[in-house]
Design a protein around this nucleic acid. Sequence first.
RNA 1: GGCCCCUUGGAGAAGCGGCUGAACUCACCAGCCUUUCACGCUGGCAUUCAGGGGUUCGAAUCCCCUAGGGGUCACCA
Length: 489
Amino acid sequence: MTVKVRFAPSPTGPLHIGGARTVLFNWLFAKRNNGVFVLRSEDTDIERSSEKWERDIADSLRWLGMDWDEGLEVGGPNGPYRQTERLEIYKEYLSRLWLGGHVYYCFCTPEELEQDREEAMARGDNPVYSGRCRNLTPAQVEEKLQAGLKPVIRFKVPKETEIVFDDIIRGQVSFQSQDVGDFIIFKSDGIPTYNYAVVIDDITMGITHIIRANEHLVNTPRQVLIYQALGESMPEFGHVSVVLDTSGRKMSKRMGDMSVGKYARQGYLPEAVVNFMALLGWSPEDNTEIMSKEDLIKAFDLSRVSKSPGIFDAQKLDWMNNQYIRASDLDILADMAVPFLKAQSLTGFSREWLKYLLAVVRDELHCLAQVPDFAKEFLADTVQVQPEALPPLQWETTPLVLNEFMARLTALPNTADFTERQQQIQVLLKQLNKDMKSRDGISGKAVYMPVRAALTGTVSGQELHYTLPLLGIERAVARIKSSRQQAGI
RNA sequence: GGCCCCUUGGAGAAGCGGCUGAACUCACCAGCCUUUCACGCUGGCAUUCAGGGGUUCGAAUCCCCUAGGGGUCACCA
């Protein structure tokens, strides 16, 4: 039997890292087993669901490179893939439950239920539905229906039964049926509830493995009961632990700052995000850290997924992203950086310049959103001399150094090639240092620091032979003049 | 409150009864390299696996209890 898995989000918010990781595990599992991955939408919460979020989730998945074989947008043999469009199917299966005597109408009001719950809690009991409407006679039901009351439909949970299932990740899990309580499968508006609709979807779509977040573990006995009542064969379950935010709390959809979209917008590489998520709660046998999608697919194994919840560590993501930035092709990086530069209206540079900049700064880049800040450092014609850069500019020997440097710099032969210019500068700097040492007894820090300070207005930054090609000679000269003025030398 | 799940360093983790004197990665700290910052390199960072009992010649690994965290008990999913 071919493996078939699914991701079934409710489109009530953006996809966050935790949800995306659940998808990843599904996707990897499908790919590993040459299976099928389905994307559908659980939009029965009409109040909060919206197509906007459905699109957002699909976009996030596409961005991460997790394609789905069947479902939303791509269609397939088991559609429709939106629960609100599957109402007929749910009703069909409902009639089977009626026939088997597994369901009943319930007319209890929210107020009554609330009161029951409070009383049960006060008694220290499990606050499950009392079963008040379970034994209504057909005549009583008819009477209430005639009166225009809109009932919900509840599932009759068998008494005194142990509900056991094997969880791929957690092992055997068991529940007592009396702790479950008759649950609602159709709301009074005729819309099915989650616990019922998922089961019907999973049955009709032929899902073989349900890999989902641990918060659904306690829902599983209800779903198991429905499978049994319908006489359908059970899929395998695997409940993955949740991802907690930095403060140790569960990620929620309201927290947009953990969304996949945010990382896309900040210029993280999807491959890095995928790699990072894979390692959150899973590790390959050989403990490799940097893994491509192909590597992950080859190595993925559900049995190595951790049971305990993981905390999202942004620092490690940054490190991971940096690893990918270092290994990326400069053209790809440049393409990714352009929108960020445009967003800040940064212009006046060539493609080659950008690529050279990226080559120079990539080692310290966590994400592409940082590129404009680096670019700005080199694009301004003058700089504000920072306090810490003032002393080197005011050293006694600085004017001499700067004069000599400028003379040599302006005498440099023309070139449009950044690497060539870099080499020229390297030679120039070395020679300058050597000459000034023998001629004036000035060397090392005494020559490099003033040049750096005048050029950049700070005492730290890239190597000068990288900085200068980026600046260009004209700008370098302008900056030195301006900085000298600011320092009064 | 009942029920279910989880518990190895600041974070991700390896570990599956003796090869662990608890790998590895991020972060952090120190030193080296260096004209500066960063990179890089080297070293440090759990006398111990939430705590306590047990089983065993031997336990982070198996069992029990306690504590802590999370989830759920919705006409949300």
